[in-house]
């Protein structure tokens, strides 16, 4: 049985913008991944619990409500605490480019903004995901 990339697509916080997250979930599934969509209103604890239980290779965080600098580093931190450093974290949404550096330094693998072709995102994940 071929190994499948397992991905969690999560919406942290109260943000209801899910068009992009759902679109990406669908497109990643079409690219052969097994995608768990968590739905809206996730706390960092919920996201990390899901990643742990699902043995996710990739965790995607989508944020369009200006809370990325609050939530993303918290998710990274909790993952570190659980020793899940090998899980690839990717994020996207409305995130000012000037915040990219901070987010990457805090442990995000990559950040993608509006207008990014989804193929670029899929390729990034496939190229950077861990082996199990």
């Amino acid at each position: 049985m071929a190994r499948k990339i397992k991905m969690i697509m999560a919406k942290p916080g109260l943000d209801g913008h899910d068009r992009g997250a759902k679109l990406l979930a669908r497109i990643c599934a079409e690219a052969g991944m097994e995608v768990v969509y968590t739905g809206l209103r996730q706390t960092p604890e919920m996201i990390v619990a899901a990643a742990e239980q699902e043995d996710a290779d990739v965790v995607g965080l989508s944020s369009l409500s200006g809370v990325h600098n609050y939530f993303f580093p918290r998710v990274v931190e909790l993952m570190k605490q659980k020793g899940m450093e090998d899980v690839l974290l990717v994020g996207g949404g409305i995130i000012p480019e000037e915040d990219y550096d901070f987010l990457k330094k805090s442990g995000m693998g990559a950040i993608f903004g509006p207008g990014t072709p989804t193929t670029e995102i899929v390729e990034f994940i496939q190229a950077n995901v861990r082996q199990r």
Binding site: A2, A25, A29, E30, A31, G32, M33, V35, M46
Partner: peptide, 18 residues
């Protein structure tokens, strides 16, 4: 067709997640 999957049941269960 693609071998991938969208696993959506967990959405309903997120209150149990932590």
């Amino acid at each position: 067709f693609t071998g991938g999957a969208l696993l959506g049941d967990r959405v309903r269960m997120s209150e149990l997640a932590d």
